[in-house]
Design a binder for these strands. Sequence first.
DNA 1: CCTACCGATCGGTAGG
DNA 2: CCTACCGATCGGTAGG
Lengths: 200, 200
Amino acid sequence: MAASRKSVIKDEPNRRAEIVRAASRLFAEKGYAATTIRDIAKAVDMQSGSPFYHFKTKHDMLKAVVLEGMEIITGAVGAAAAQGGTPRDVFDAMLLAHLEQLLAEDGRHFAATLLHEGRHLDPAALAELIEHKDRYEALWQKAMRDLKRAGDIADDSHVTRLFLMGALNWTVQWYHPNGGRTVKQIARQLSQLLLLPRTR
Amino acid sequence: MAASRKSVIKDEPNRRAEIVRAASRLFAEKGYAATTIRDIAKAVDMQSGSPFYHFKTKHDMLKAVVLEGMEIITGAVGAAAAQGGTPRDVFDAMLLAHLEQLLAEDGRHFAATLLHEGRHLDPAALAELIEHKDRYEALWQKAMRDLKRAGDIADDSHVTRLFLMGALNWTVQWYHPNGGRTVKQIARQLSQLLLLPRTR
DNA sequence: CCTACCGATCGGTAGG
DNA sequence: CCTACCGATCGGTAGG
């Protein structure tokens, strides 16, 4: 009776979340295909068959990681976009939000999996991801339109937005937490690169 | 005797190159880990064991693809950098050269493998790749230094170079040959985004 | 370069 | 969630 105590209070509910978290790290580090169910099980101290109690297939684990990653970023950047202020303020807040989620200790494995392992999703989940992504990028396109109207940017074309996405998402490849640059500094430099100098 | 004619004149010498080419496409499309020796063999009409006549291991195939990709890009951009002209002309030529190799029908699978599958290299080959990459990025850093001295760019810091690399390399994710934009147009737009308007 | 094959590993499952 | 296991597939090899 005392023995059952161990898992009664609060253990059980987030074994699934632990699996997703461990999977995100392994998928980010080794890639989906090179990550083994046994790797994931070991990372959360389970036996090799046990993750299938929580997920029907390995693909479902990837889907959970990718969709959670998408929601983390969309949530943070959407909040920044909705906060109000000048187009410049909004844009700067969005840059910072995107980079913080992408580079933070806890979110970066979700982001890296999202950016690099999408092709291993089954067609239905891939379609869902693309839909999310399109909505997300529309947020940026709108922010750039507002900047353009306010005279803060020279060009708000789709190609410019794609260059921006590249500059942002590529940070995953080179950023190191102890690399001497804060996320805030990186965001500010990107803002200065893209926006026209303030008039006055 | 007549039968031996078939492979005497010019068949044999480039079976290895055919394997590398097929491997680059498959690694780019499915990823290294999800690509099977049998996939590669089938793509060049061989039996499943035969690629090992040309390569000792699957890792060696990846190494060949990645190093060839690196050489293709370094060669093209290095030539552009060495051609002379104003810092602006040199930079524009480098942008175009990088994008042409990255997005061309024949080179893009090498580039995509290079950009995404490097982590599957063995440590020695990975070190070699990083060395190549550092030399390559130094080329860009120098071009930016020259731009800065000529007053053509506001900031030539390392971070700006990394943003540039991101904008460039991310094109692999969105460019489509029939997408209505030529590589030349893309290069020009990126140049306009980064460089200051010409004085006069 | 093919034939024939091997040991290892993998995703997944039945039954408890 | 564990135990015990299965069929399939994989990288790689011997021998020709």
